[in-house]
């Protein structure tokens, strides 16, 4: 009996030691993987933005394609809808995800599409949080002071994916969650009202893109 206890104790101690050694090593590997992923995605984005041989519409399309691959649009969209996700009907959920993807990609590619001459580099602080990695980058544009962007990278089905962007301590998905929630609440809890507002916004964005 005592032997068993001792063996269990030893086993646990050994396990803890190994886990203690392996834990940080695994975290390092995760950080490296996430940083590499951001590095390569960032280079693709910069190449797309600075491609002089194409016009702005084509550049934007390339940016959108990179973003669609790199961002886990579905989980971000569900996070942002928060508690209203469960209150939405399956049709509303489907339509929401479609509209959300379009809004996100259009907004981001319109913004990045204007960053002519942009350069970027991995920043100093890469850190692991509970279930993802924060990768810091520094964005440089001509005639503008450099600014830092943090990318939250999670493993989705074994693939690193972007799940949030943080600028000036402000998380994009938290801010947008508050925005969408506010729209729904001000319309007496109607998810349909949010969908209508999103459709209107996409129309406006499309008109503006054509106006350019």
């Amino acid at each position: 009996m005592h032997d068993l206890d001792r063996r269990a104790l030893l086993g646990t101690a050994l396990f803890l030691t190994v886990a203690g050694l392996a834990g940080p090593a695994m975290a390092q590997a995760d950080i490296g993987r996430a940083a590499n992923f951001i590095q390569s995605t960032g280079q693709e984005l910069v190449a797309a933005v600075n491609d002089q041989t194409r016009d702005i519409a084509a550049r934007r399309q390339r940016v959108a394609a990179v973003l669609r691959r790199a961002v886990d649009v579905e989980s971000v969209g569900r996070f942002i809808l928060g508690r209203w996700w469960r209150q939405a009907s399956p049709q509303e959920q489907q339509e929401y995800l479609k509209l959300f993807e379009e809004t996100l990609i259009r907004n981001l590619s319109a913004r990045f599409g204007e960053y002519q001459g942009v350069r970027f580099a991995l920043g100093r602080t890469q850190q692991r949080t509970e279930d993802d990695v924060l990768v810091n980058t520094v964005i440089e544009r001509p005639n503008t002071a450099p600014f830092s962007l943090d990318w939250r990278v999670a493993e989705i089905n074994g693939q690193p994916k972007i799940v949030d962007v943080i600028a000036e301590g402000t998380s994009l998905r938290l801010t947008q969650r508050s925005e969408y929630s506010s729209v729904i609440q001000r319309n007496n809890g109607s998810v349909a009202a949010l969908l209508t507002a999103m459709r209107g916004q996409i129309q406006q964005l499309a008109q503006r893109e054509q106006g350019r």
Binding site: G169, S178, E179
Partner: peptide, 23 residues
């Protein structure tokens, strides 16, 4: 879609980051 709530959320997040001197 609602700039009021966007600013509110952004302000509170940013203040929290400043207070913790995180970067």
């Amino acid at each position: 879609l609602d700039s009021y709530s966007t600013l509110r959320s952004a302000y509170r997040q940013r203040r929290a980051a400043e207070i913790s001197n995180a970067g």
